[in-house]
Amino acid sequence: MSAFAIAAIFLGFYMLFCLIRVAAGPTVPDRVVGVDTINTLVVALMVLLGTFYKEVIFIDVAIVYALLSYIATLYIAKYLEGSPW
């Protein structure tokens, strides 16, 4: 069904908004918020593309991507906090 591809194109377009925030954000946490939003959108996009192409492997990659990007976000947040580990 091509509706899934069209929705995926929309999600890719929204990533541009987040990229503007990543480029322009005045402070570092602003940029991190932008990257985190892009991560969520990428997971949704991979699931949609996996449905469009009928490839289950895309969705498996999406699961792993969600968990790994979460760890990366936690790592950056902990670094921003500046407290001893």
Binding site: D36, T73, A77, L80, G82
Partner: peptide
């Protein structure tokens, strides 16, 4: 985590 990191780093 981001909110807490931001607030503690002084934003």
């Amino acid at each position: 985590a981001i909110a807490r990191g931001a607030r503690r780093s002084g934003v």
